[in-house]
Design a protein around this nucleic acid. Structure first.
Length: 191
DNA sequence: GTTTGGATTACT
DNA sequence: GTAATCCAAACA
């Protein structure tokens, strides 16, 4: 079952946790989400909304389920889902997938052979799926969506850990990982 | 107009 | 360990 907008009208941590195990579909490609991070629009110094007026404007102008795609380090597009819930607004960063369909296309786009190298990082998965600047402001929900999520068929064991690559609010355990997955970007500390 | 700081990746 | 590479924001 396709995830509807209401899924993203809850708090960002719940959305990030429950997206682990869902399937992301984009064109002929798909993969199971094995790693996400939550960013909240208030009180989270690592979130773009904390230091970018343009990000706050994005939250104000778009509905839950919108795609927030931005260029990081001048080189890699990172894909987020906008969350707007009663418990607060925020984003879920998509950090890693276990590739399922369209693996040949992913290999071609990535220039890598090993399946584990295709989507094991936020910059890698956007390359593998062909997500980029033109997808900023698009949507993961609703008619005409270029990409969407499908609900997990069975319950998923989810672990939490601190987020990767940030300096501020770095102690918050807001990274969510599928337990024992070989396809995450960085293994859980001590696990 | 110039400077600065990143939610990364791949290669040595 | 570190080069590659660019935008938004802040400052002048």
């Amino acid at each position: 079952m396709r995830l509807r907008r209401a899924f993203f009208e809850r708090d960002p941590l719940t959305c990030a946790r429950e997206l682990v195990g869902a399937r992301l579909v984009c064109g002929s490609c798909s993969g199971t989400v094995v790693e996400t991070e939550a960013y909240t629009a208030t009180g989270d110094e690592a979130a773009h909304t904390f230091f970018r007026p343009s990000a706050r404007e994005f939250v104000a102008r778009h509905r839950a389920g919108a795609a927030y795609v931005y260029l990081n380090y001048g080189m890699y597009w990172l894909a987020n889902v906008l969350v707007k819930g009663d418990g607060g607004d925020g984003f879920v960063l998509l950090r890693a997938l276990e590739p399922e369909r369209g693996i040949a296309a992913m290999r071609r786009r990535r220039g890598r052979e090993r399946t584990r190298d295709l989507c094991s990082g936020p910059g890698k998965l956007t390359i593998a799926l062909g997500i980029g600047a033109e997808d900023h402001g698009g949507s993961f929900v609703g008619r005409g969506a270029r990409f969407w999520f499908e609900a997990p068929g069975r319950p998923t064991e989810v672990e939490e850990d601190v987020r990767v690559g940030i300096t501020r609010s770095a102690e918050l355990p807001w990274r969510f990982l599928m337990r024992d997955s070989e396809y995450v970007s960085v293994r859980k500390k001590g696990g």
